[in-house]
Design a binder for these strands. Sequence first.
DNA 1: CTGAAAGCGCTTACAG
DNA 2: CTGAAAGCGCTTACAG
Lengths: 390, 390
Amino acid sequence: MSDPADPSAAGPAGIPGGSPAAGPTAGPAVGPAVGPAVGRRGSRGPKKVGAVNLRDVAAHAGVAPATVSRVLGGSQHVNPDTRTRVLAAAAELGYVVNGLARAMTGRGTRSIAFLTSEMAGFTFGATAAGAESVAAANGHLLLLCTTHGIPERERQVIATLCEQRAAAVLLVGSSGTDRAYTERIGGYVRDLAAVGSKLLFCGRPGLPGLPQVRSVDYDHGGGIRSAVSHLAELGHRSVGYVGAPRGGTMADLRLDGYLAGVRENGLEASPRLVAQAQNTIEEGERATPLLLDADRPPTALVCMTDNVAVGAYRAARARGLRIPEDLSIVGFDDVPVVGDLTPGLTTVRPPFRQIGVDAAEIALGLRDGDTDVRLGTSLIVRGSTGRVRD
Amino acid sequence: MSDPADPSAAGPAGIPGGSPAAGPTAGPAVGPAVGPAVGRRGSRGPKKVGAVNLRDVAAHAGVAPATVSRVLGGSQHVNPDTRTRVLAAAAELGYVVNGLARAMTGRGTRSIAFLTSEMAGFTFGATAAGAESVAAANGHLLLLCTTHGIPERERQVIATLCEQRAAAVLLVGSSGTDRAYTERIGGYVRDLAAVGSKLLFCGRPGLPGLPQVRSVDYDHGGGIRSAVSHLAELGHRSVGYVGAPRGGTMADLRLDGYLAGVRENGLEASPRLVAQAQNTIEEGERATPLLLDADRPPTALVCMTDNVAVGAYRAARARGLRIPEDLSIVGFDDVPVVGDLTPGLTTVRPPFRQIGVDAAEIALGLRDGDTDVRLGTSLIVRGSTGRVRD
DNA sequence: CTGAAAGCGCTTACAG
DNA sequence: CTGAAAGCGCTTACAG
């Protein structure tokens, strides 16, 4: 019973939803739908075994295969009567075009791939959702791949994607910035180009060494700077930063944003105001005390991500510090629920969904121009930031 | 410059990562990798235009296409020397097998599809991640599709998946329970079976009318019952429920779990202890007051989901109610950050990732037996639940 | 408007 | 162990 192909499970014929949906141009079912025409009145020997194909439809309609291909392919000039006859035959046999075969002739729609390190987290989902909506609206499927950050796995995935002839691959999220990384990506770009595909950066900036790879990103630095400015306006002069050390695109951009914000607003600038933490709550909880327990602790913290900020909340609370009376905190990403913390987290919101949408549109060639796109962010002010205590 | 196929972008030959990875059995690159062999010393007329194919490799190695197919296909008996020669030729030409063509002969690996209403949210991501890991480990790609809950879109997606010959489709998440729904799904099952594919329920129970469709789910009812029991142990006698009205698998199962829990623990049972709210924070915020503002309000609330619970936090706070002193609250799902609310949310944690893993394994036929699987949940006790006030 | 033929790129019996 | 041939299911010039 675990075999859904069991004909005995077909149920009563004629149930709506059971219509052989066929291709985008096929009409509604007419007669009782059937699966593979196995043993259908012994019409043509014991040959057929797979699904019904185009030739079956042609025979059933009394036309040549080429004609069936034309009407199903939405071709131009076809006699209305012939068209009707073919459509009826297709529906009657429950014909479903073989997309694989079609793709081989160049007419098929190739899928677009979304390649990310981990597919967990809100930011991933929002971006993927944006890409999916565009893909779907254009008849493409979205392939979801994960590298877990290991090069060998990444290589493997790209190879598979080349074989499957993905239309394009969106490389999503932060990445390394070293020379080895650039060369590795450069290899992917060539491999993909060899099969008519292309690479696109999504949610991360382009690579200097790879100017031909377009990027769809948001303004990491600008977002952080707006957070720093917000704190400066509230009177803070000593603002700390908790985030990942240099070495990744996101870490670099956000840290640089902090540094620029400090400079622009004439705030205290000092290495002792920066604590290193990877992007997890635990890391934020671990690193924040490095700043809070110092001699003259900062009155406000800008965190690389909301995860880190939540860790900062924990650390502050553990020390009996009130937010924002004793310490203001700003996050980045605006993931769900952080607005319901006590107090709500002030944070920078990137247009994740839009990033996915733009990337997919570019990947599908729906957009002209060849420039990178970089979207703006918005500062969501909630209760975790307040005027500095006098 | 937006064309990644631009040969001038190929950079210096010999860069690692740029190796023509080819199929799973192809060896490492040897000479300088090249893309399509266009114009390569005019070797065979102006014919070639696409990527290099198997015949090119055969010619380059001085063997028949069938032989190349054998060594690349990991076939058995092939002369070692011949194998070496073919592998070298493949690497030299940067050959990448065409998965589409291979799939047409039945040898290719078909992708598995993950079909969900919305691809937002933690639960979705965790489940998909589990499925992806299994798919990847077995050389399959994961297709991500979205229906936005609209039947027409759902139909469209299934049709496309049939055309693309997906190996299986995982129908993920809650759904309707009415007869029309069952018939619609029944149609999909037949359509998929006709192309050798199958349907699987994931994170939701099976449909009585469709016993042949297997389901991989977790114990919604048991999870809620454990929450109710937990509250009963804390002395609560009047426990309310906030969740969606009947009509969906998740809503039904969780509400039934509440009802059973109330009965099992001999708690107050009354329709006025149940408030209806869809699965969003706002809905929880809207519906909770219906219970709190009643004559003899419950001392504890079980919410269908964490979203609803967060809404309940808002409502309680708006009334000056302390959690858990004045009101205990339990959620369901254990999405990120709810543990950092004030107080941390006590909630039921389903094994989302495992659900995805199991579903994918079954879809890929990696598991025997034909029974449905239903995994257990764990109650994560945090600060939002406490002894009832005397 | 419609057929017959060739081709897309691979794999698999069938014969050596 | 290896070739030549046929076939997978579709589409596209090429001729009517």
